[in-house]
């Protein structure tokens, strides 16, 4: 507990469940004094796009509004709000540069405060972390 623990999270999908799960883990860990680093790759990159609203996958898609309503009743607002809370608590966001190229996403399309890097850059961050979560 004397030295800061570190958690890295990799997110490769953009659906509502995975998006929210990543932010639940990130905000909670940051609140517990853990340094949190979240890398968004492949479709996960969409979550860093300004104004992107994630939806549930496939057959669950029509339930997205219902889920959001239920969550609002539990004090959980939108993905935007969760990401803002995460940032406020010191969570760091990273965008995969290759995914940006594949999906034609420019730096200006991303929310503020995101670091763009490749695999080596993120491995450097991740390699000495105490725990890793893969959400995809």
């Amino acid at each position: 507990m004397s030295e800061e623990k570190k958690l890295t999270i990799v997110v490769t999908e953009d659906t509502f469940d995975k998006a929210m799960m990543s932010m639940f883990m990130a905000t909670t860990a940051a609140g517990m004094g853990v340094g949190v680093h979240v890398y968004f790759s492949f479709f996960g990159l969409n979550l860093l796009r300004k104004g992107f609203q994630p939806e549930l996958p496939e057959k669950y898609k029509p339930m997205t509004g219902h889920f959001m309503e239920k969550m609002k009743g539990m004090g959980i607002n939108s993905m935007d709000d969760m990401m803002a809370t995460a940032t406020e608590l010191g969570v760091k966001f990273y965008a995969c540069s290759t995914s940006m190229g594949m999906m034609d996403v420019a730096v200006d399309d991303l929310v503020d405060g995101v670091t763009v890097l490749g695999a080596a850059g993120f491995i450097d961050v991740a390699i000495d972390s105490d725990a890793q979560l893969f959400i995809g």
Partner: peptide, 16 residues
């Protein structure tokens, strides 16, 4: 007062 809030919001409010 975190009544009605579900994880992770009580911990977020506690941290704040």
């Amino acid at each position: 007062d975190c009544r009605g809030m579900m994880c992770p919001m009580p911990i977020v409010q506690l941290t704040k």
